[in-house]
Design a binder for these strands. Structure first.
Length: 800
RNA sequence: GCGGGUGUGGCGGAAUGGCAGACGCACAGGACUUAAAAUCCUGAGAGGGCAACUUCGUGUGGGUUCAAGUCCCACCACCCGCACCA
């Protein structure tokens, strides 16, 4: 059989029939399978795409066979830097580039025979799509969850351009190699922090893999502790956050983040202001790279003339600034207890500051006695006045109570998750649909004027001052205020790459709606995404952003359920053939489409799924293609032996077992072992003189999700009715899984002494007698103390 | 440092606490062929033995159990993510 022409034939039929179109409101039970939509780069599909799409295609085809109404859609996440940079280099409009790349991707995906519903194809760069991305952004704006704030961008002083984190890896500009600096810029932010608790709690409603939940929890980073109100001697108040209030009597100084605004307020009172400025300057120059380096040498600067008061005992202590305190976490200020915190300990040693031991049990001459050392060990407080003698756990409660009663603080939780910087000073993204009016401030573009279309520009490169290229088009920037009708200017920033992907699964449900982002009844019908397959690199950012948008929409009554995805699964990373990481620079990348060219779609699908456990990291292997090709050829050859007839009793066991195993393995994403089972079944059928049609049908039906073209062709050639896809997934009788004879292992004192065939339904006494007779010599002179029988597996005699 | 994961033949990988190495790759021998490719058959964890057989074997060390790759404790190596988070 010429696989490739057969594949073309069926691909055309599927396309002409719209075979895989998912019907809204069908009576069948729904099943929504989502695979991350690709970024249509110039390079085409790669190994990060194909196994995902194939794996989910196998699941989709199996679910359809089981009678589900399956939604398996695809689209393009097409805004983004590679296309923009290509435009900067060539001057070709990103729209053109995107169109070309999408065509290429589509053709490749179709050649793999993926059963996407092409009638629901979406593209984030379509005006009809980003209209709704803008609309949702405006809902955030209207609810006060979008705000402007100063945030740092990665800035290349040489190229005079803002860079993404990816473009400034290692602290150097990807284009020119210059050192990237942090430059403050006023930007749109989304108040994601307000959803921290909801995002954390919501995880309990999902069936994500535990490791994915763990990563999200870690990223959200909740810690429970105490917010304590402190004062300077000069009267100014400030708050600190601590998870170790039990150490409050051990405070010997306070530390503020260098950027803490309190420092500016104290300018006139700080005697060494120049020094402070110098330190601030130094700290701000540290790139993100240096700040996160492994070696974290402490540094800091005292605020001379400033004295703070420990609210618990009114003790006066000095105040420092240091970059080991982060401005963005907690309150940007900490109480320093060097005896019980490693970082404070280091800093105190450096600055020659005193320490007070307040929890007994450690040796603070050597190192800090930290919470990890003392928690849960019944350690008691010392040097803590009235609280002496309490255990740490008792003291936490008592101190929180005391602070609350004296209005000095309260219990509180903080989160590591920050608000989302939602502006990019770039071209190829969704324009932020806001205008600025001197009189009215920031005003939303009215719904009937959406989308705010991305205008054409001559140059795609950001301006020298870091503004978006849109800022150069005066006739676009200058507009009228929708509120008062006066002159106003458009926002020239665009949204980040992540915007379009933060709601796309909702659009698939109703892709052509021009009244709403999706019809509510349709959203109700399709419900949550049942299984969402994507890359591990998106588990924190994309997945959190998506859940955040979804929860916001839910809170505003715009979607009917509070979590978007039920299950989240991911493919293991595919390494290069030599087991190292695939990378363009190493020149060891693999193009999966080469294998489609060489072997055809079905062989390549099988080959990719047979390489190993879908979810484990594994090297790409060419070695699976040939045996999979052989398998299909053998199955084609089997057709010659097919005669009309029902399933014969002697074949019931292997057929039932195969239906069960292949079905379960697909559900569990164990595609490699499903294929093994099909190989075993094929070998079995090959050894028969002839095959009855009902037996062959089962083989083809369970292979169909893996090799949809060739199985459909064979089915048609055999003239089986109805067509393969109108034939349900085969069922089997549980009784068929019981063989009438099985071989079990015989053990004496847990050592195998031999094997014997028994009938699995015989009782223990019968089996014991049979074995004792057969292995008589082994039992000579021994006394049997105990017998363990594992049905159909083994029998173990414990003897003396 | 913290969180998650992995560790099994020459290789990819299988094994609800129950016969470790399914299924494949590579390898060796054989059949077909003038020859090769393709295809098919056979063999094989390692060591020892002519053989029947026997010893050792799932990263390391302990433990539980009639029975451990699987469960428990401690450790090692590698991978992924996070990392001065108070």
């Amino acid at each position: 059989m010429d696989f490739k022409s057969v594949e073309k034939k069926w691909q055309k039929i599927w396309e002409d029939e719209h075979r895989y179109h998912a019907e809204d409101f069908s009576k069948k039970p729904k099943y929504y399978i989502l695979v991350e939509f690709p970024y249509p780069s110039g390079a085409g599909l790669h190994v990060g795409h194909t196994p995902n799409q194939i794996a989910m295609d196998i699941l989709a085809r199996k679910k359809r066979a089981e009678g589900y109404n399956v939604l398996y859609p695809i689209g393009w996440d097409a805004f983004g830097l590679p296309t923009e940079n290509y435009a900067i280099k060539t001057g070709i409009h990103p729209k053109e580039v995107t169109k070309k790349n999408v065509e290429h991707f589509k053709q490749q995906i179709k050649s793999l025979g993926i059963s996407f519903d092409w009638d629901r194809e979406i593209n984030t760069t379509d005006e009809n799509y980003y209209k709704w991305t803008q609309w949702i952004f405006l809902q955030f704006f209207k609810k006060g969850l979008a705000y402007k704030a100063e945030a740092n961008i990665n800035w290349c002083p040489n190229c005079k351009i803002g860079l993404s984190n990816e473009e400034s890896e290692g602290g150097v500009c990807e284009r020119c190699g210059a050192t990237v600096v942090q430059k403050p810029k006023s930007q749109w932010m989304l108040k994601m922090s307000e959803y921290a608790e909801k995002l954390l709690q919501g995880l309990n409603e999902t069936n994500y893999w535990e490791n994915i939940k763990a990563m999200q929890r870690k990223w959200i980073g909740k810690s429970e502790g105490t917010l304590m109100h402190c004062k300077l001697k000069s009267g100014e108040g400030f708050d600190i956050f601590t998870t170790c209030i039990e150490t409050v009597f051990g405070i010997t100084y306070f530390v503020l983040a260098p950027e803490n605004p309190l420092v500016d307020k104290l300018k006139d009172k700080i005697q060494n202001w120049n020094e402070v400025l110098q330190y601030r300057e130094k700290a701000s120059k540290k790139s993100e790279f240096e700040r996160t380096e492994l070696v974290k040498e402490k540094s800091g600067c005292i605020l001379k003339g400033i004295t703070a008061i420990n609210p618990i005992n009114n003790k006066e202590v000095p105040v420092f600034i240091s970059d080991y305190v982060l401005a963005g976490y907690g309150t940007g200020a900490v109480m320093a207890v060097p005896a019980h915190d490693e970082r404070d300990y280091e800093f105190a040693k450096l600055m020659n500051l005193p320490m007070i031991e307040v929890i007994s049990g450690g040796n603070i001459k050597e190192r800090a006695f930290e919470k990890g050392d003392y928690l849960g060990k019944n350690c008691k407080l010392i040097n803590s006045e009235n609280f002496n003698g309490l255990t740490v756990e008792e003291a936490k409660i008592a101190l929180n109570k005391y602070l609350e009663e004296h209005n000095l603080g309260k219990k509180e939780s903080t989160y590591k998750m920050r608000d989302w910087v939602f502006s990019r000073q770039r071209y190829w993204g969704e324009p932020v649909p806001l205008v600025y009016c001197e009189k009215c401030g920031w005003v939303a573009v009215p719904d009937d004027q959406l989308p705010v279309k991305l205008p054409n520009v001559e140059k795609y490169k950001p301006t020298d001052d870091g503004e978006s290229p849109l800022s150069r088009i005066d006739e676009w920037v200058n507009t009228t205020c929708p509120h008062c009708g006066g002159p106003a200017k458009r926002e020239t920033d665009v949204m980040p790459n992540w915007a379009g992907s933060s709601w796309y699964w909702l659009r698939y449900i109703d892709p052509h709606n021009d009244k709403a982002f999706a019809d509510f009844e349709k959203l109700k019908y399709w419900g949550k995404v049942d299984i969402y397959n994507g890359g591990g690199e998106h588990v924190t950012r994309h997945l959190l952003y998506a859940r955040f948008w979804h929860k916001f929409l839910y809170d505003n009554g715009l979607v009917p359920y509070s979590e978007p995805f039920d299950k989240r699964v991911q493919q293991g990373i595919i390494l290069a053939k030599d087991g190292t990481k695939m990378s363009k620079s190493a020149g060891n990348t693999v193009d999966p489409m080469e294998y489609v060219e060489k072997y055809g779609a079905d062989v390549s699908r099988l080959g990719q799924m047979f390489m190993g456990d879908y979810t484990e990291m594994k090297p790409w292997s060419d070695a699976t293609m040939k045996p999979c090709e052989r398998l299909l050829n053998r199955i084609v050859a089997l057709k010659e032996n097919v005669q009309n007839g029902e399933i014969r009793p002697e074949n019931r066991y292997i057929l039932a077992q195969s239906i069960k195993k292949v079905g379960e393995d697909i559900e569990n994403l164990k595609f490699n072992t499903a294929i093994s089972q099909i190989m075993i079944l094929t070998s079995h059928l090959e050894n028969l003189k002839n095959i009855n049609s009902e037996e062959y049908k089962i083989l083809l039906r369970i292979l169909n999700p893996f090799a949809p073209h060739i199985t459909e062709e064979l089915w048609e050639e055999c003239n089986f009715k109805p067509s393969i896809e109108n034939t349900l997934w085969p069922s089997f009788n549980e009784n068929d899984l019981v063989q009438n004879e099985v071989e079990i292992a015989v053990q004496i004192n847990s050592k195998i002494v031999g094997r014997t065939k028994i009938c699995p339904t015989s009782n223990q006494t019968e089996i014991e007698e049979k074995v004792k007779n057969e292995f008589e010599s082994k039992f000579a002179g021994k006394e049997i103390i105990k017998v363990v029988l594992i049905p159909s597996r083994l029998i173990n005699f414990i003897v003396k």
